[in-house]
């Protein structure tokens, strides 16, 4: 048998990757979530999760922390991306670089630096939730700026001119031109900030002095003692994230998400 080379075969590495690192692990999580310690099928974890106020509270807290983080990131990133995309500056990539460079520095180092800074100001151990959100915003801001910037870069200048010609003021132009056309960037930015800020417990441990518990920490702790419950929490998180991604339109096919090119 001769193997014919075809273009489709270039996809083999990806298929293998997908199989071993996405599909099989997902099935394993699903299997563990719906079994008990004796490996019998059971809904016990599911019922326990939804009847335990602690777990629901933690989900709610994580959601709120993630929502605030995403909102703050959006508030900071949107104007920056807009100004950068529209400015005629020659060296604007330098400014963009300044926002992105922190991403290239080791994450633990950055969080430690913030920790020292907070401790120096005297906030460490005092405002645990604020510190956590601050760390998350600092950490995930580039993930919001980049997609927004690339989307806005692609908005034709002529559209703004047309809008002005037709008598639209600044706000109307924003509402009718900028905002709708930057939607894909917003959607992909939100997706990329929202999920990690629900699970990145290193930030909440280091900056919240381990007194802030988010859902990621929960999963980590359960995997030390009870894999089945841990899998169930992971599965529920997956569903929450899936729902929120769907709601923000990250999965809409007719709008190509141009910003997701990180």
């Amino acid at each position: 048998m001769r193997l014919h080379f075809s273009r489709k075969m270039l996809g083999i590495p990806y298929v293998v990757f997908l199989l071993f690192f996405v599909i099989i692990p997902m099935l394993i999580i699903l299997f563990y979530a719906f079994t008990d310690r004796e490996m019998h099928f059971s809904f016990a974890n599911f019922i326990q999760f939804f009847s335990d106020p602690t777990k629901l509270s933690t989900i709610v807290y994580s959601l709120v922390i993630a929502l605030i983080t995403t909102a703050v990131c959006l508030l900071i990133a949107y104007p920056v991306a807009y100004i950068l995309a529209r400015s005629k500056m020659k060296k604007k990539f330098v400014i963009l670089l300044l926002f992105v460079t922190p991403m290239w520095i080791n994450f633990v180092l950055r969080i430690n630096a913030i920790r020292e800074l907070l401790s120096w100001i005297g906030l460490l151990g005092e405002t645990n939730y604020f510190n956590t959100i601050l760390g998350m915003v600092y950490d995930f801001l580039p993930f919001m700026i980049l997609p927004l910037y690339t989307t806005m870069l692609k908005i034709e200048e002529s559209l703004y001119e047309a809008s002005a010609d037709l008598g639209a003021g600044g706000f109307t132009t924003f509402q009718r031109v900028t905002l709708p056309l930057s939607m894909p960037g917003i959607a992909s930015g939100i997706t990329m900030v929202f999920l990690p800020s629900m699970t990145n417990y290193v930030v909440s441990d280091m900056l919240g002095n381990s007194k802030v518990t988010i859902i990621g920490k929960f999963i980590y702790e359960y995997f030390g003692t009870n894999w089945h419950m841990g899998s169930m929490v992971a599965l529920i998180l997956l569903i929450v994230v899936f729902l929120s991604t769907w709601l923000t339109g990250g999965l809409r096919e007719n709008e190509t998400v141009r910003g997701a090119n990180l």
Binding site: T54, T58, T213
Partner: peptide
């Protein structure tokens, strides 16, 4: 006992909301 104590630990470490608060926040979201 191990399971009970681990549950206790997660209760102590996380902020517990009353049921009504969970409902209110969920509805809000």
């Amino acid at each position: 006992a191990n399971e009970a104590i681990n549950e206790l630990w997660s209760r102590v470490k996380s902020e517990s909301l009353d049921t009504w608060a969970i409902v209110v926040i969920c509805v809000g979201i």
